[in-house]
Design a protein around this nucleic acid. Structure first.
Lengths: 189, 189
DNA sequence: CAGTTTGCCTAAAAGAATTAGGCAAATACA
DNA sequence: TGTATTTGCCTAATTCTTTTAGGCAAACTG
């Protein structure tokens, strides 16, 4: 009976990889056990439940995403920062569709408050400091940016933009131009 | 052995109701059978599989949403149309969170092409006719509107906007104002 | 009212989640 | 180094969900 060396971290990582391969909705404790070639019950020393596994994958994805975003924002401001930030989301979702789906999991309020989700909000506000917005407009703008980024990425991932001849990359650039213009003009449009 | 009168339509309807009550991800053939007080196997005369049920709920939701949107658009144009259309999405998602989640299910291309999803795209284009956009800008704008509506609604539903003092309704209005202004100004921002 | 269709059933297999309790490997400690 | 303790992974069992096969009776067809 050789010990494989399971830990919560390794399980979470492998679960995230599994999500990218088969889709987050198909991540299961059984499949994860198979991947480590151990019995299912063995995972329950490290994970409370199937839901717990999903939550841990979500938190991992949020961390990774926040780390990448922080990297991308370093030394940038204005439209440059906006674009870099937006591309982090889009690129991450394309590279890691399962992890991205996990990041969209609805977390209970305490878990969400302790997650990297708060860093995301902070970074969005940091970007908006490059534009001239005061409250409550800044909050409105935070929400708008979050909506556009998440909405675009998730529609694109679902294949929603593959029917038309127009290239998705062009639409993305156009949208970022538009958002930048919008924010520069403040509320006086 | 009294016959309950199961039909695919009744099952789909009840499945949609169930989704609104317990969440689309918790919709199961077993739960649906329980609701009709019949044995699980009985549903398989009307449904091919669990996936089939989910797809049918998704198609139902897309139809309902398109019907509401068509109603809302009748006799409106410009910002009035834009606002009415956007509110249909948001209101539907708030009234029927399970159905809305179902409508976001990834459908295989043929199913999607035969679904009410195409009406949604057509209506979005109809709204944009009230603004002065030519291709490919119109396509970019279609994608942007879709992203914002879907993104906002899904973030709001996930509770993402409940942490701040700023009212979600105000942000929504601000965003619609911004989009209208953006589209009115064309690409010359 | 006989014949056919068909709706809901029982039965059964297989995958997935979860808990309880056990044995052996790793670690601690004398 | 040998013993004691912890702990990692196991077997076993329960429950729930999905899905298929085959049967009987109710509802239409004539």
């Amino acid at each position: 009976m050789v010990r494989v060396g399971l830990t919560t971290e390794r399980l979470t990582q492998a679960g995230a990889d599994l999500a990218d391969e088969v889709g987050f909705e198909h991540v299961t404790v059984s499949a994860l056990a198979r991947r480590f070639d151990v019995k299912v019950a063995s995972l329950y020393s490290h994970l409370k439940s199937s839901q717990d596994l999903k939550t841990k994958i979500a938190l991992l994805a949020l961390e990774e995403l926040a780390d990448r975003a922080a990297d991308a924002l370093a030394g940038r401001s204005g439209k440059d920062a906006l674009t870099a930030f937006a591309n982090v989301y889009r690129d991450y979702a394309r590279e890691h569709p399962g992890r991205y789906a996990a990041a969209r999991l609805k977390l209970d309020p305490e878990t969400a408050a302790a997650s990297a989700g708060v860093r995301h909000a902070q970074m969005t506000r940091a970007i908006l400091r490059g534009y001239d917005l005061t409250e409550p407009d800044q909050t409105h703008a935070v929400r708008m940016l979050g909506s556009v980024f998440h909405g675009y990425v998730s529609l694109e991932l679902a294949g929603g933009f593959s029917h038309t001849a127009v290239d998705s990359q062009d639409s993305w650039a156009w949208i970022l131009d538009s958002l930048d213009a919008l924010l520069r003009n403040g509320t006086t449009l």
